[in-house]
Design a protein around this nucleic acid. Structure first.
Length: 292
DNA sequence: TGGCAGGGGCCTG
DNA sequence: CAGGCCCCTGCC
């Protein structure tokens, strides 16, 4: 067990931030279990004191996972003071970090995520881990996320039976591609953000949004800015100057323009801002919202 | 209770 | 660009 004093770090906020789906509350208060690939951690937080229940040799892995070397205060200080909404969102979620998660796990998880709710994504990921992952040698019943080889044991019918719907065929193909080497994870890991986007969107079932999530949470390209239905609504409601909107401009073009206008100043770390907004919108009570 | 809308979208025509 | 898609959940 190792204790550290951390700022801009909140286990609960991270668990509720919608970027990781295998970080769950433990029985003990203020305690969470986290599984990433084959790694397992139990961690507790009391104010700025965070306790890592793991062997010392595992600590570097989790320090990297939680991105502890990055200065999130600096990101928040870079926020445009005239952007009251973003400032409020960042203050609200100042314990959120962009995790360095397992690349393969992120690919499958965000393929699963399309047209699903967050609780539902959790269940699907957990079901896959129990069915095809490895039991972890820790107290309790925990399973690693299945490797490409392990997940390849699932037939299309198996995946359909696990309520993956039309995503089953995408997952099947991703397993085949990863095992054949056509989807080369270490090569993907060597690419720039732009090249990684091109590479990822070339695979079946991976579009721009999913690729951005993989870049942000699996490759730590923190410039990635995933635009989902929530972010799209926020952009339209909070950032679109309604008077100047051409009526027939496609919504995707409007979003592009709004991102360019309001978030290009955060080039290099715009994804952190996206995450503050996403967390705020999903977790702040109505009384904390600004004027609508 | 049943029907409908929508969910951290993507592929096909 | 429009339509369809698997299945679940929340809402009326």
């Amino acid at each position: 067990m190792i204790q550290k004093t951390l700022t801009s770090f909140d286990l609960k906020q991270i668990a509720d931030s919608g970027q990781c789906f295998r970080m769950l509350p433990a029985e003990e208060a203020n305690t969470y279990t986290v599984i990433s690939g084959p790694h397992f951690l139990k961690a507790a937080q009391d104010g700025q004191t965070v306790t890592f229940f793991c062997e010392p040799e595992e600590l570097p892995f989790w320090e990297r996972y939680f991105d502890l070397d990055t200065d999130y205060d600096a990101f928040r200080k870079a926020i445009n003071p005239r952007d009251a909404y973003l400032k409020q969102a960042a203050d609200f979620g100042q314990g959120v970090r962009i995790l360095r998660q397992d690349l393969w796990e992120m690919i499958i998880t965000f393929i699963i995520s399309q047209q699903q709710t967050i609780p539902s994504i959790r269940r699907r990921v957990e079901d896959l881990s129990h069915a095809y992952g490895s039991r972890l040698p820790v107290p309790g019943t925990f399973y690693s996320f299945p490797s490409p080889e392990q997940l390849s044991a699932a037939s299309l019918e198996d995946l359909l039976a696990m309520k993956l719907g039309y995503r089953a065929k995408y997952i099947k193909r991703a397993c085949e591609d990863a095992c054949s080497g056509r989807l080369d994870l270490s090569y993907l890991g060597s690419l720039s953000y732009e090249d990684a986007m091109d590479y990822l969107t070339g695979f079946y079932g991976i579009g721009e949004k999913v690729a951005n999530c993989i870049c942000l949470f699996g490759l730590h390209h923190i410039d990635a800015f995933p635009v989902d239905t929530w972010i799209r609504k926020i952009l339209m409601n909070r950032y679109a100057p309604k008077s100047r909107l051409p009526k027939d401009l496609p919504q995707s073009r409007v979003c592009e323009a709004l991102i360019q206008k309001h978030f290009s100043r955060y080039r290099g770390f715009a994804g952190v801002m996206q995450q503050y907004i996403f967390y705020y919108e999903r977790n702040a009570g109505e009384d904390l919202h600004g004027p609508s």
